[in-house]
Simulated scan of single mutants.
Amino acid sequence: MLFHVLLKALLFELYFGQVYATVNATASSNIRAIYLFKDVLKSNTTALKTSGFNSLIIFGVGILENGDIMYYSNTPGSQDTLIASGGAYVGGTALSDKVRSFKAGDTGINRLEISMNAQHVRELTRSPGTGSETTLYRNFEALKTAWALDAVNNDDESIYDVTSTAAFAKMLGKIGYKYTIAPYTNTGFWRNVKTQINNGLQEPNLLLDRAYLQCYDGGAGNDPGNWQSTLGLKVVPLVWVTNDSKPSQGITATQARSRFTSWNSRSSVAGGGYWNDYDIEKMGLSYTEYGDVLTSIFP
C-alpha cells in the first residue's frame, strides 16, 4: 500500500513538474517590447502602459568619462539631463516619477530597461574599476533605485570589447540589474560576451537574459533562428515601425504581424519588439494596433 502511495506521489510530482516547466517555458517566450526614443517626460505614458507591451527600453542613456550618467534628448524642445553624479541621483523628481509610473497603476509593464552604447565603459572598467566604491558602481546603484530599473541594455555598435563588456555586466549584476544586448552584426563578439557573462549560471538566474535582435536597417537581413543557434539563447526580433527617417525600413502593423508570425513559426523566438515610440506618435500611428500584433502572437 505504501509503495502505491509513494508511486502516485512520484507520478504526481513528475507530471506537475513537467506542467510547471512548460508554463515557465511559455512565460519566457512572451516578451512584448518597445524602445522609447522620445523624451519620456513627453511620451504617451497611458498608451505605452495599456497597449499590450510588457517591456520598455529607454534609449539615450550614456556614461561620461568620469562615470556620471546622462539622459540625452532625442526630442525637439527637450534637453540633455544629468541623471546620476557622484554616486547620487540628480535627475529630478519629475523625471524619476514619470519613469517609475510606467510600472505603476493600470499597466501591463513589468520590465523597465535603459539602453546605452559602450562609450567609456572600457576605460572606466580598467581604471578605477568596478568596485562598489567607484563612482560608476554607485551611480548605477542610485539610478536603479530612483527609476525602479530592472535591466541595462547594451547597444554597442562600434567598440566591441569583450573583457570590459563582461566586467561591466557583472558589476551591474551585483547591483541587481539584469543585462541585455541589442545586436545587429558581429555574432562572434556577442557569442563570446554571452558566454563570459553567463558562465556558471543557469536559468532563471542568467545575468544576460535577453537579446533584442535588430532586424531592420543594418540588420535587415538577420534571421532570428540563426542568431539563436549562434548565441545559444532565444532572441527577441525587433522591427522598425512606419517612419519618415528611413521609410524603406519601416513596416506597418500588418507587415509586422506577418514577420513575427513567420519567425516564430520557424524558430520559436522569445517575443517581439519595436523601434520606436517617437515614430509611432510622430506618424500618427496606433500603439494599440502594433501592440495587438504582439499580444496575439506572444500572449
Results as ranks from 00 to 15, higher is better:
E133T: 15
S115M: 08
G17Y: 11
G52F: 02
G200L: 10
G271V: 03
G17N: 12
I31G: 00
Y15H: 14
G62T: 13
I175D: 11
P128W: 07
A146S: 05
T46M: 10
L206P: 04
Y137F: 15
L6F: 14
L41E: 02
F16C: 02
S101G: 08
E289A: 14
T75D: 09
V241L: 04
F53W: 06
I175W: 12
T195W: 00
G86R: 08
L233V: 07
S258V: 13
G91D: 08
L208E: 01
A21D: 12
D209A: 05
S28I: 01
Q196Y: 11
R111G: 00
S158A: 13
S229M: 00
N24A: 13
T163Y: 14
F12I: 14
T261L: 08
T295F: 03
P204M: 02
Y15W: 15
A146P: 04
V40H: 00
G291E: 02
N186P: 10
T134L: 06
T45L: 14
L206C: 03
S248E: 13
T163G: 07
A253C: 12
G221W: 02
R126I: 15
A253F: 09
Q255G: 12
V121A: 01
E141V: 04
F53Y: 12
I181V: 14
K234M: 05
A167H: 11
T295C: 04
T261R: 10
K170V: 06
D223F: 09
Y287F: 15
F12T: 14
F37Q: 01
S96C: 06
P237H: 02
T254P: 10
S51Q: 09
T254M: 13
G129C: 03
V236G: 00
N222W: 11
G52L: 07
S85W: 12
P183D: 04
Y35A: 02
A253L: 09
A167M: 13
K103H: 12
R111M: 00
G17C: 10
E123N: 13
V121E: 01
